[in-house]
Design a protein around this nucleic acid. Structure first.
Length: 150
DNA sequence: GCCAACGTTGGC
DNA sequence: GCCAACGTTGGC
């Protein structure tokens, strides 16, 4: 049984067109423990995720990606020149883990306002007030309700 | 650009 | 272990 996810990307940093061009990418830069734990412990290879544009006008779902690797260290945590550098992380004991994701498709854009209009989606993490988690689980019911709009 | 909400840090 | 201060996120 696959699980489903929603993964936010700041649209100015990395949008669906970059994902489509790259085909695969390491999901670098997650620096929140709960989001890390989802990637490290709960994601499975083959799981599908919505690619979500945050800080966009408007924000919303722009595509689908597939989890395509086991959990592995996010190498940017060791890179002093990276904005994601973390001086508390060591190669022996990495703090931040990531997954590689594979481009599946660009979808019809589903804005956050559209999502709010879907009754089956009202409990989605991304819709909760003050939600800042960059990776959230999506239920099968939510996934299917959104699929039916694409 | 604003600002509410959040997670993290650090003094105690 | 508390909690105020701070920096960041992210919708608008």
């Amino acid at each position: 049984m696959p699980s489903y996810w929603l993964m936010k990307s700041d649209v100015e940093d990395y949008a669906i067109d970059g994902m489509a061009r790259d085909k695969r990418t390491d999901w670098v830069g997650v620096r929140n423990y709960q989001a890390r734990n989802f990637m490290r412990d709960l994601m499975k290879e083959g799981d599908l995720a919505f690619f979500y544009h945050s800080n966009a006008e408007p924000s919303g779902i722009a595509g689908v990606v597939k989890i395509s690797s086991p959990a592995k260290p996010d190498l940017t945590q060791f890179d002093k020149k990276s904005k994601y550098y973390d001086e508390g992380a060591t190669k022996e004991n990495p703090r931040w883990m990531l997954r590689e994701v594979e481009f599946v498709k660009k979808t019809k854009f589903v804005s956050i306002a559209d999502l709010r209009d879907i009754p089956a989606c009202k409990n989605m993490g991304v819709l909760q007030k003050g939600s800042r988690l960059s990776i959230t689980p999506v239920t099968e019911g939510e996934w299917k309700a959104i699929q039916s709009l694409l």
